[in-house]
Computed example of a mutant assay.
Amino acid sequence: MAKNFALIVGASGEIGQTISRKLAEAGWSLYLHYASNERFVKLLLDDLTLAYPAQEFILVQANLLEVEAVEHMAASIFSLKAVVFSQGHSLFKGLEDTSAQDIRQLFQVHIEHPMLLLAQLASKLRVHDSASIVFIGSIWGETGASYESAYSAAKGAQHAFVKAYAKEVALQHINVNAVAPGFIDTNMNAHVKGDERQMLLDEIPMGVFGLTADVANTVAFLVSNQARYITGQIIRVNGGWYI
């Protein structure tokens, strides 16, 4: 039986690792991309290889701040049925303190280089009867966040791309969607502490922060056959914080 391969961009991050484990559990073979967290991704590779010996798990190293990374990644990937973009970094700065380089790097990592990568991978996706692309967007890409204007803009661009590209490749049976998490309890949100953290918690109708598993479960659904008629959507995973 042929193996189904998914590329997890940003597999070494907390959300990326959880997505990788969830998709491996569902039977996927994986390309595990990382930029610099080699130790974490190798531990992930070892765990998955041991747990799922009938599947394949392949490391792909590339820094998405470098345009050469796109060519390198595309050349490293052969059979491909799904791509999940879970890479990226946030930026907590007022706009007056945000440099041109800050903005450039956010857009390169979150939108510019992923778009260029998809342009090279599309032919590998469309050979299948169905294929999937999922971006991990953000609540801030929809509603915006004070002191995260540049980050919100990059995530908003991701959401806009999802809606446009979904139309472009629909007849090729490629679904394109985004998951827009609210506050997920990860190290990326560790800068939110004390009273500020409690204030955010008070705003969430469910009264709890999200887990990486909440994001991974949604991704697993979107790349499954159960989501075959869903495309161009921004799926909110935020406990009712933004509706």
Score class of each variant (00 low, 15 high):
1 M>H: 14
1 M>D: 15
3 K>P: 13
5 F>K: 00
7 L>D: 04
9 V>R: 00
9 V>Q: 01
10 G>A: 00
10 G>S: 01
14 E>N: 01
14 E>M: 01
14 E>W: 03
17 Q>A: 01
19 I>W: 03
19 I>S: 02
20 S>H: 03
21 R>H: 08
22 K>I: 01
23 L>S: 04
23 L>C: 08
25 E>S: 09
26 A>Y: 13
28 W>S: 01
29 S>E: 11
29 S>I: 07
29 S>F: 07
30 L>Q: 05
32 L>N: 02
33 H>G: 01
34 Y>C: 00
37 N>I: 08
37 N>E: 15
37 N>R: 13
40 F>K: 11
40 F>T: 09
40 F>I: 10
40 F>C: 08
42 K>S: 10
42 K>V: 07
43 L>P: 02
49 T>A: 09
53 P>K: 12
53 P>L: 11
53 P>R: 11
53 P>H: 12
55 Q>M: 12
55 Q>G: 09
60 V>C: 05
61 Q>Y: 09
62 A>V: 02
64 L>S: 02
69 A>N: 11
69 A>P: 03
70 V>F: 03
71 E>P: 05
73 M>E: 03
75 A>L: 09
76 S>H: 05
78 F>Q: 13
79 S>G: 12
80 L>G: 02
82 A>Y: 06
82 A>L: 07
85 F>E: 02
87 Q>A: 03
87 Q>G: 01
89 H>E: 14
92 F>E: 07
94 G>S: 14
95 L>M: 10
96 E>M: 09
97 D>F: 08
98 T>K: 06
99 S>G: 12
101 Q>P: 11
103 I>G: 06
104 R>D: 15
105 Q>Y: 09
105 Q>M: 12
106 L>Q: 08
107 F>Q: 02
108 Q>C: 05
108 Q>K: 04
110 H>Y: 11
113 H>K: 07
114 P>F: 13
117 L>T: 02
120 Q>R: 12
120 Q>F: 06
122 A>M: 15
124 K>F: 05
126 R>K: 12
126 R>W: 11
129 D>M: 07
130 S>E: 11
131 A>V: 05
134 V>Y: 06
136 I>L: 06
147 Y>P: 02
147 Y>F: 14
154 A>T: 11
155 K>N: 03
159 H>G: 05
163 K>I: 14
163 K>V: 14
166 A>R: 01
166 A>V: 08
166 A>W: 05
168 E>V: 06
168 E>N: 08
169 V>N: 06
171 L>P: 04
175 N>D: 11
179 V>L: 03
179 V>Y: 00
179 V>G: 00
182 G>K: 01
184 I>H: 05
184 I>P: 01
184 I>N: 03
187 N>D: 15
189 N>K: 06
193 K>S: 07
200 L>V: 12
201 L>I: 09
202 D>A: 09
203 E>C: 13
203 E>S: 13
208 V>F: 14
210 G>E: 10
215 V>K: 00
218 T>W: 04
219 V>C: 04
220 A>R: 08
221 F>P: 04
221 F>A: 11
223 V>M: 04
226 Q>E: 13
226 Q>V: 10
228 R>I: 14
228 R>A: 12
228 R>N: 14
236 R>F: 12
239 G>D: 08
242 Y>W: 13
242 Y>E: 11
243 I>R: 14
243 I>Q: 15
